[in-house]
Simulated assay, not measured.
Amino acid sequence: MKYLVACLPLAVCAYAHAQSSVTLYGAVDSALTYTNNQGGKSALQTYSGGRAGDKFGLRGVEDLGSNLKAVFVLEAGFSIETGAFQPANTLFGRQAYVGLSGDWGNLYLGRQYSMTNDYFVPLSTSMLFAGGLGATLGDIDGSWNYNKISNVIKYESPVYHGFNYSAMLSLGGTAGDFANNRVYGAGAQYANGGLVIAGAYMNMRTPATSIFGATSSPVAGAAFANPVSNPIFQNYVSATSQQVLGGGAKYTYGRSQASFLYSNVRFLDIVRTASNRNAPANAAFNNYQINYGFNFTPATMVGVAWQYSAAPHSNYNSFAAGTSYLFSKSTYVYGMCLWQHASGVDSTGETAVANLFGLTPSSTANQVAVRVGLRKMF
């Protein structure tokens, strides 16, 4: 009998282990980037996360019975060039949430991706081949980088005959001001065979602090430490709210895939600080993407893309081409070339210049970037 009692703790541990799991995952990605013009000079530089961000994380699942599971994700971003965390001064800055999953859907609490990231990215130039370089106008629609939001409550529905939806709310946490830093949104998708149709909406109150990382909210007439240096929309970041609405479709047929993505971005009730005294009351952007990819072999893909954005007093055209070759399911090399052309007057009131995402603005209307890199996932 004593042998039976002695074995019981081991049996309980074995049972618990069988009902739960924790997975370590991540990716490391380094690239070499040539740019013809950054601040008036050409540049050759290494770049961390050239195709997608460097990261490592833990993903856990525990079976609670009756098709109910407890889940968590802790995911950190970092620079493979320096080893520093990205975003700075964070540990699990990409994702950090806990939740429940069941027949009724999923409910997650914590730092998570936005609706635009969930629903726009699969249709985008960035996902097809270009990574951050292919983001819409410095990621103005939040479909690539500024998509990690803190204090989120998110619900994801089950899939009903190819259709699913989700909604999220981030509470600002400011006593006496429920709207300050509040973020909310919703999205939906329908998938059938090779066709995917998706759309999403995001509303971000006080985007300077809730999204872009400013240390304090903008105040009319006062100095403002603007965290955004992209002149395309730099002087609009002090808006009282930012709204993003958009959607598109992707169709995969044989070895080809084609996609279209549209987004409308509005900066509303822009606060005129000491650095943007001539900013308009509101500013709107209409952004369009058309993408095409072809798999010559299961391991080799090429893609081309065109983007056009209409800003309040300027226009931006971008053309891109790229390729990738898979050594295995988890390791591949890639290459891409992008050209952006600007015309008109930008948000700062100056002649518009090109500014691909992640690079210093050009000193002219044009900017060309060529990037090659290696990505390893685990």
Score class of each variant (00 low, 15 high):
residue 248 G to A: 11
residue 248 G to F: 05
residue 248 G to V: 10
residue 249 A to D: 01
residue 251 Y to E: 03
residue 251 Y to S: 01
residue 251 Y to Q: 08
residue 251 Y to L: 14
residue 251 Y to M: 03
residue 252 T to Q: 12
residue 253 Y to N: 13
residue 254 G to R: 09
residue 254 G to S: 09
residue 255 R to N: 14
residue 255 R to L: 15
residue 256 S to Q: 11
residue 256 S to I: 08
residue 257 Q to L: 12
residue 257 Q to C: 06
residue 258 A to K: 05
residue 258 A to M: 12
residue 258 A to G: 10
residue 259 S to W: 01
residue 259 S to Q: 02
residue 260 F to G: 09
residue 262 Y to S: 09
residue 262 Y to F: 01
residue 263 S to V: 12
residue 264 N to L: 06
residue 265 V to W: 06
residue 266 R to P: 07
residue 266 R to T: 09
residue 267 F to A: 00
residue 267 F to W: 05
residue 268 L to E: 14
residue 269 D to K: 08
residue 269 D to C: 02
residue 269 D to G: 00
residue 269 D to H: 06
residue 269 D to I: 03
residue 269 D to R: 07
residue 270 I to Q: 07
residue 271 V to F: 03
residue 271 V to Q: 08
residue 272 R to W: 10
residue 272 R to F: 07
residue 272 R to D: 10
residue 272 R to M: 08
residue 273 T to W: 01
residue 273 T to K: 01
residue 274 A to V: 05
residue 274 A to L: 14
residue 275 S to P: 03
residue 275 S to G: 11
residue 275 S to A: 07
residue 275 S to D: 13
residue 276 N to S: 12
residue 276 N to T: 06
residue 276 N to L: 06
residue 276 N to D: 11
residue 277 R to Y: 01
residue 277 R to F: 02
residue 277 R to T: 11
residue 278 N to I: 13
residue 279 A to C: 04
residue 279 A to H: 12
residue 280 P to K: 10
residue 280 P to E: 12
